[in-house]
C-alpha cells in the first residue's frame, strides 16, 4: 500500500483543493495586489511598485498600531501564560471540588469573545458598571476605562488575559500529569521543599509545553481582536488600534484594498517568523523526551 500513488493523492485531494483555493492563491494574490493601486470607479488599478509600503512607513496610524500591538503582546503573553501555569498548579492536585474548579477556570475560553466583550463593557460602563461603583465606594472620581486613551488598551488586554489563561491551563494540566509520581516521592524523601521541587524538577520538565503555549500566545496576541470591535473600535484616538483591526478598517471600511493588502503582508511576515519559531519549539519538544 505504500506505493499506491493514485489512492494517496485521492486522500489528500480535498484538503489540498480547499487550501489552494482559500489560502494559497488568496495570499499570493494579496502579495501581488500590494504592489498595485486600489481601483476606484472607472480608474483601473495600476502598478505602483513599493508605493503602498512607502505610504505605510509614513502612516502615523500604522506606527501607532504596531506600537500598540507590541504593548498588547507584552502584556497579554506573559500574563496569560503565567496565570495559566499558576492555575494549573493549583487544580493539578486532588481535592474535593477540583473538577468544578477546572471547569470554572476553563469556561472563559469557550465563551464567544463577543459575548464576553459585552459583559466586560457592562463591567466597565462609566457611572454605572461594577468598576465604577467600586471606585465610588472608596471615594474615587468616576473614570471611563474604555473611553479614555490612557487606559483603553489595558482594558482590552485584561479581557484577553481573562479569556486565554484557561485555554493554556489545559495544556499545562496535561503536562503536569505526565510528571512521574516516583520523582515526587524521591524528592519528599530527600526533604525537598515544594519551591525547590518546582524550580528543579517541574519547570524543566514542562519547558516544552511552555514553548508551545507561548508561541500560541504570540499568534493569539495578533489574532484576538474580536472584542476591540465591541469595546473601543480602535479608539479613542487610535489608543487601542491593533494591527489586525487596522487591516479590517482600511480594507472593509475605507475599501482601500491595496493598502490593506500591504498591511496584510506585514502581518503574514510576522506570523511566518513566529511559525518558524513554532517548528523549532516542536522540534525541541521531540528531542527532549
Amino acid at each position: 500500500m505504500r506505493r499506491a500513488w493514485g489512492q494517496a493523492w485521492l486522500f489528500i485531494l480535498p484538503a489540498f483543493v480547499f487550501l489552494l483555493a482559500f489560502t494559497h492563491i488568496p495570499v499570493v494574490q494579496t502579495l501581488i495586489d500590494s504592489f498595485w493601486s486600489t481601483a476606484k470607479g472607472r480608474r483601473p488599478a495600476r502598478f505602483v511598485g513599493l508605493e503602498n509600503y512607502a505610504h505605510m512607513m509614513a502612516d502615523p496610524i500604522f506606527a501607532k498600531a504596531m506600537i500598540n500591538s507590541a504593548i498588547y503582546g507584552a502584556i497579554t503573553i506573559p500574563a496569560s501564560v503565567g496565570l495559566s501555569l499558576v492555575m494549573a498548579l493549583f487544580v493539578h492536585r486532588r481535592f474535593r471540588g477540583v473538577g468544578l474548579m477546572r471547569v470554572a477556570f476553563f469556561t472563559p475560553t469557550v465563551l464567544p469573545l463577543i459575548a464576553v466583550a459585552n459583559i466586560w463593557l457592562f463591567f466597565y460602563a462609566p457611572g454605572f458598571g461594577l468598576i465604577a461603583q467600586l471606585r465610588d465606594l472608596v471615594g474615587l472620581a468616576p473614570v471611563n476605562l474604555v473611553g479614555q486613551p490612557a487606559t483603553a488598551l489595558y482594558a482590552v488586554a485584561a479581557v484577553t488575559v481573562w479569556k486565554e489563561a484557561g485555554f493554556f491551563m489545559i495544556f499545562y494540566l496535561a503536562a503536569l500529569q505526565t510528571i512521574p509520581e516516583p520523582l515526587r516521592e524521591a524528592a519528599a524523601i530527600e526533604g525537598c521543599r515544594p519551591w525547590t521541587f518546582f524550580r528543579r524538577v517541574t519547570w524543566p520538565l514542562i519547558m516544552p509545553t511552555t514553548l508551545f503555549v507561548s508561541v500560541n500566545a504570540v499568534i493569539g496576541a495578533f489574532r484576538l481582536v474580536d472584542h476591540v470591535y465591541v469595546m473601543t473600535r480602535g479608539g479613542p484616538d487610535n489608543a487601542s488600534q491593533l494591527l489586525l483591526y487596522y487591516i479590517y478598517e482600511v480594507g472593509f471600511r475605507f475599501w482601500d484594498t491595496a493598502y490593506a493588502s500591504a498591511l496584510t503582508m506585514v502581518l503574514v511576515a510576522i506570523l511566518t517568523v513566529v511559525g518558524i519559531g513554532q517548528f523549532f519549539a516542536a522540534d525541541r519538544k521531540v528531542h527532549y523526551k
Partner: peptide, 27 residues
C-alpha cells in the same frame, strides 16, 4: 503512503498553520 511530491504536499499544508482566517480575511 510514500508517493511523489509527498514532502511538497506536506509543506503546502503545514505552511498554512501560520495563516488563520483572521489574517487572510481580506483575500
Amino acid at each position: 503512503f510514500r508517493f511523489p511530491f509527498r514532502m511538497f504536499a506536506f509543506w503546502c499544508i503545514f505552511i498554512t498553520l501560520m495563516l488563520p482566517v483572521e489574517v487572510r480575511i481580506l483575500p
